[in-house]
Design a protein around this nucleic acid. Sequence first.
DNA 1: TTTATGGCTGTCA
DNA 2: ATGACAGCCATAA
Length: 115
Amino acid sequence: MAEDFDVVGMHHTYEQIYAAVRRIPRGRVATYGQIAALAGLPRQARMVGYALNALPESRSLPWHRVINAKGEVSPRSEPGFERVQRALLEREGIEFDARDRVSLARFRWQPRLPR
DNA sequence: TTTATGGCTGTCA
DNA sequence: ATGACAGCCATAA
């Protein structure tokens, strides 16, 4: 019954993801899984990817600060986009090694406060 | 409704 | 270190 009105919950999920992404400080990166967890959606890293994929460009969200657990920029549908994201990160001071990977040990955003 | 796919992750060989 | 598998679940056909 009330389930028919879960409209709030539906969009709330994406909002949570966007909110989490927005918290990533400049010069820092976070993984999809990390964002998912912060958004209260453990194990739903893929949803983060979808949320960001469906994200309107007009929305100034630091989506480029979200990378995969390997510390590398996830290959997107469009070829060559990888370097764009990389450029954005480098502009914030993120460093890439010879293998085009970021050292999560150093640049991963680690929020102290729970949730 | 079912099926297929996807900006992933953790575990195991 | 790399490669294969299974799990999670929303969106599009």
